[in-house]
Design a protein around this nucleic acid. Structure first.
Lengths: 387, 387
DNA sequence: CTGAAAGCGCTAACAC
DNA sequence: GTGTTAGCGCTTTCAG
């Protein structure tokens, strides 16, 4: 902004109304974006009016509004988000904290989130978490210091001390694919999904059905087990404890190809007493299981039928029958919820569970159709402290 | 902030030094985070000093620095990023514009980016682009209005008018998996990769080698074709024009499963004159090709060998030999480049190409090893306008 | 080494 | 309706 700098530069515009009044009519390089003052000056109005125009404030005459907009467009003016944020105490950005190891599932949800957010002219900040420790870092950094208006918290459990702080600060938080009673949450009905998957097997006539699960430490794994058990119990099928195996792996709670592979090998050791169908807790494990069967010379629909869970991209390639989670829709809803809560922080937390949908492919050797649609249930729960 | 509001609220702290001096010693709710004034007051220093402490300015005595830090920690103070941004005209955030349709490739790169960025205490803003139109929207919105310090532009071509503007504004831009001579770029050597892949086939003894390509409109497709041709030419192999097919699809430039499937079907119509091996321009197309072969009753390594490109997750499951792109490393490097350019905007654009690495699996029926490592070549090019 | 004060670009309360 | 002004929380001269 020194005069000396100007000599070598191609400059296109004048700034006539700078704050440093002792240098009125100073020329400025264009690459400094125009401010509200530039617009005000050129349009012969006060900065207040310009501000009003850009905030759609009703009390501006059509004439001036038009004039301001015209000038603004000509100068390619856009309000500075940070200045705005500072003045209104609102950032127009939200934070997504996602576990970075995973793939398709989150990208798909994020896509939904963003499609909603862009309507709201809201930015998406991304924190990828690889290690539990990083959760805290990101929470502390991003949110506790008013960098964002709210956050989406994916598939992880929220540390208690943070939950308390958010509640107290009234920072809107939406739990996605996870649960906390004091925050809005959006998740999938694992129990029901497992129930549907297992019933599919049952309706196909299978009598000896097993389950290959992830680590029971994880909530989804437990819920999916319950759904499986419910279906089997209701159908009054034979139950062999050896047909229900869960991973003891702690990497990603056993939701890995490796875990599936190893567990399936265990199954196959007892050659004489195999189930004819297995419900696998996740597609990724199913892929491992498939590999194990392959090695053992077993064919998938014929020797053992498989149902997975998640409908990741891979499932399509593997022709795996599975339960699809409506990821995009979950993302959109997450965005909506957040928007609502931004407008009205006092509403009670709401919890939405999506019902996964059965996608029939060839891994069960049938084309029978399952339940049709994605249904959402809504259910209010206790609210957080009133503050 | 009205006194009336306070009655129902649990408040923990006092703010003694507000700017509205006509109301000194007003009590404030704690959920408003402490400001620099709070710290200054409690530590008996001026706000300038506090600021210096948090900017690691050398001229602060150890004693005061310690005192300030102690108070700051006690009050859980963190500088407000937006205020900071406004004052220093720097946001400490960068924008990633990525095509949202794709999956593993980008997540992996982003992970690399973020691992670098978090060192720099820098935020990652994410814009997902589904439609070409959205490119412009995001560029306009995010960057042209000083919301971020710089950006990463993924796998898409930068509209000329924006390129001009960025150059003029000196906004640092890094092209990732794409190229523009005036910006730093990080990409993969497609030609060389294709060359290596094809040579792998040649060394395995194949004499009749074909290529299944994407749409030649796309730069990577053209480069991969060139690499293929180079290898075939050097080996003085028979060339049959019918063995080189490229997709005419415009969705994702033919880099789709569908395109691969259809093209492979075309191959298979000429039963009597088939190549014994095919270099496929991408794994995703290879998956389609595999499906087509399957339907036709052909086995992969035995009847036709396949090499892919990209090493997406699926490739592992399909046991597809392919060229791996060092995605994480590309991300890290992208972050580094951006950091450099932030510090010194005047350096000449540099262009880095990573050499993809051959990953041998079973789709070629061999275990011979290819070139070992990811090598990076660096090569300076013409710089942008000096401004 | 440290305090005071101006200013970053904008919003909102207050006058006229 | 519209201009004016006091901040938002921080950085950065400028004095001392």
């Amino acid at each position: 902004m020194e005069v000396s700098e100007i000599s070598s530069i191609f400059y296109l515009t004048l700034r006539l109304y700078p704050l440093n009044l002792w240098k009125p009519f100073q020329k400025i390089i264009v690459s400094l974006p125009p401010t509200i003052y530039d617009i005000a000056k050129r349009a012969n109005v006060g900065i207040g009016t310009v501000s009003r125009v850009f905030n759609n404030h009703p009390s501006v005459s059509d004439a001036t509004r038009a004039r301001v907009l015209e000038v603004a467009k000509r100068l390619n003016y856009r309000p500075h988000p940070y200045a705005r944020g500072l003045a209104r105490n609102r950032t127009n950005a939200i934070l997504a904290v996602i576990p970075f190891f995973t793939t398709f599932f989150f990208l798909e949800i994020l896509q939904g989130v963003q499609s909603k957010l862009s309507e709201l002219e809201c930015d998406l900040l991304l924190y990828g978490v690889n290690h539990p420790d990083q959760v805290e870092a990101s929470l502390r950094q991003g949110v506790l210091r008013s960098r964002v208006d709210g956050m989406l918290f994916f598939s992880m459990k929220m540390p208690d001390n943070f939950a308390r702080q958010y509640l107290q600060h009234r920072t809107p938080v939406i739990m996605v694919d996870s649960f906390h009673k004091n925050f809005d949450s959006i998740s999938v009905d694992n129990l029901q999904g497992a129930y549907i998957a297992t019933n599919h097997l049952i309706r196909l006539g299978h009598k000896r059905i097993g389950m290959l699960n992830a680590n029971l430490e994880s909530v989804p794994a437990r819920e999916r087990l319950k759904g499986f058990q419910k279906a089997v119990r209701e159908a009054e099928l034979e139950i062999d404890a050896r047909w229900i195996k869960s991973s003891s792996s702690t990497t990603f709670d056993g939701f890995t190809r490796q875990a599936g592979y190893e567990l399936m090998k265990e199954f196959l050791t007892s050659k004489n007493n195999l189930p004819t169908a297995i419900f696998v807790a996740s597609d990724i494990q199913a892929s491992g299981a498939l590999a194990a069967m392959h090695e053992a010379g077993l064919k998938c629909p014929e020797d053992i039928a498989l149902v997975g869970f998640d409908d990741i991209e891979l499932a399509g390639h593997l022709d795996l029958t599975t339960m699809r989670q409506p990821m995009f829709e979950m993302g959109v809803l997450a965005g909506e919820r957040l928007a609502e809560r931004l407008n009205n922080p006092k509403i009670e937390p709401s919890h939405t569970r999506f019902l996964p949908k059965l996608i029939v492919r060839k891994s069960c050797g049938s084309r029978e159709d399952g339940p049709q649609n994605v249904a959402a249930t809504n259910q209010a729960m206790a609210s957080g402290p009133k503050l």
